[in-house]
């Protein structure tokens, strides 16, 4: 064993290993910190009007369900909402339950919007009639231009 002559002794080898690991540890910590501290949303939310359907396709009376696709953060997101026509009034409701954010459905037989999660119920005007929701359904703005219907979303 005594023939082996290394240029580096045990102590400084261990020291170098320690420096190396500390350096990598610091780099990882710094990376996590920068990713954490850098804002994930930089621009403010804006109104985005997306095309929903043609004016002729709107419900004459009652509720109709729609899906729209819109871009969000480089991905395409599908959003479900309802257009309600009662009398002369035309309303757009978000399908997100105001209780804990489940997606509600329109039950024609009950004449109610029903949430499958905790039994929240809304009438055709979007008001809470039963269950835990703290607020009526969110109304979305609607715009009709050249016989085309656009829904306003905050993205």
């Amino acid at each position: 064993m005594s023939e082996i002559t290394s240029k580096i002794d045990r102590r400084s080898f261990l020291q170098k290993i320690c420096y190396l690991f500390s350096f990598f540890g610091l780099c990882i910590a710094a990376g996590v910190y920068l990713l954490f501290a850098f804002p994930s949303r930089i621009r403010e939310k804006q109104d985005l009007y997306v095309y929903a359907c043609d004016e002729a396709e709107l419900p004459v009376q009652g509720v109709r369900q729609y899906h729209v696709d819109y871009p969000l953060g480089g991905k395409t997101v599908t959003k479900k909402f309802f257009i309600v026509k009662t009398g002369k009034k035309l309303l757009v409701f978000s399908s997100v339950c105001t209780h804990l954010g489940c997606l509600i459905n329109w039950q024609r037989t009950e004449n109610r919007f029903m949430c499958p999660c905790h039994g929240g119920q809304y009438d055709i005007q979007g008001n809470v009639v039963a269950g835990p929701p703290p607020a009526p359904l969110n109304r979305l703005p609607l715009k009709i231009e050249r016989q085309k219907v656009y829904i306003g979303l905050r993205v």
Binding site: V32, L35, F36, F38, S40, R41
Partner: peptide, 9 residues
Amino acid sequence: NEVRFGWFI
């Protein structure tokens, strides 16, 4: 939910 590594930290 939104901050990167927020849940972890």
